[in-house]
Design a protein around this nucleic acid. Sequence first.
DNA 1: CACTAATTTCAGAAACTTCTGAAATCACCG
DNA 2: CGGTGATTTCAGAAGTTTCTGAAATTAGTG
Lengths: 205, 205
Amino acid sequence: MNLPPLIRSFVLHFGEMGSRWGINRTVGQIYALLYVAPRPLCADDIVEALGISRSNVSMSLRELQAWNLVVLKHLPDDRRDFFTTPDDVWQILRTLAEERKKREVDPTLSVLREILMQPAGSEEEAHAQRRMAEMHDLIEQLTTWYDDVKRLETERLATLLSLGSKITRLLETKDRIVSFGRARKSERPGERRSGGATPGKDPEE
Amino acid sequence: MNLPPLIRSFVLHFGEMGSRWGINRTVGQIYALLYVAPRPLCADDIVEALGISRSNVSMSLRELQAWNLVVLKHLPDDRRDFFTTPDDVWQILRTLAEERKKREVDPTLSVLREILMQPAGSEEEAHAQRRMAEMHDLIEQLTTWYDDVKRLETERLATLLSLGSKITRLLETKDRIVSFGRARKSERPGERRSGGATPGKDPEE
DNA sequence: CACTAATTTCAGAAACTTCTGAAATCACCG
DNA sequence: CGGTGATTTCAGAAGTTTCTGAAATTAGTG
């Protein structure tokens, strides 16, 4: 490996991290390298920078493509493939979330659904099904939220994040103001339960 | 492995999933088993249910304890350790988020900070630092949001989730109403930038 | 403080993943 | 359509992780 020290540390750290979740070391390193490189790199650039075999680079790039994490570029009069990462880190985050959901969450949800369809053969199984139903419902709530939020443009998403938990307070403020403004048109919102509070159901978006 | 079919499917799925992210197959299976079991299990119950060696169970339980994912119980007049998972799935989610952050996010943040402190030795390194800074800032925004939201009680967290992106609309509604109600006390909120929109900075928690 | 039973540790075996170099494939060019 | 160079595939080598049984440790008991 023959890289400027700062880039080297970053690449090595990503390699480590990569192996801590599913992705492997080389894939992590290549991603890190592409992420910080000032221009798109071709396979041989990567071989040179990381000191790994050509075939390993080829396979790892395939994997990154399968994750939609890299962008393919072509230079005129050069038939080699050049690779970069998207410029926008928020876009990268979205892709990562989407792919991890696809690989980690969706299969679990469908296994849970399948098991929950079957009849329990004993009290032990019935209890297990109740537990699985709790898990299923939690995951479903989270993915519903995610599906909703992922469509926001970056700017609004950032606003949402910067508000954080303040929103629950804001929500109460809004309840007060709106119910006051409308002079109690129907009934007052009052205490809200955990399940399905969906005020202000605008048709747009 | 000698388990009722529904439980068996669940346990096997979790084993698979386990190996898809960092955790290993056995650890995943044991967790799944404890999660659906109607009562706390001891190590030998697990050996029996999953058909794996006693020592493997012992090591895997240690790992689950290191992740804070299991609860230790003792029965009177029995010095064996019995294990369960917490009853509340939201609590489980919190623990999982906390531990993954500790292992996956925090180390990355500190590596990024360290690298960003060092002087760049070339334009290539300077560019890399700019990219790393973008990544750093994104992660910091996400963790700030997380640190804020994780303190919410389950009920409020559920409300927040069920609102999802509707909140940004709600926010605009609130801006309108509040600025109208206050009859433009100081300046009007207007367009909001991505960075630090923090309306309603209440002192309380 | 010896005995017993539960539990943990650990060295090496088994299983699995990653990585390589050689061979096959692909795609353009004359 | 044969040649050239880039790229991919793949069998097996290298490396890593997981799992086991045997030995060591811990903790309670008479």
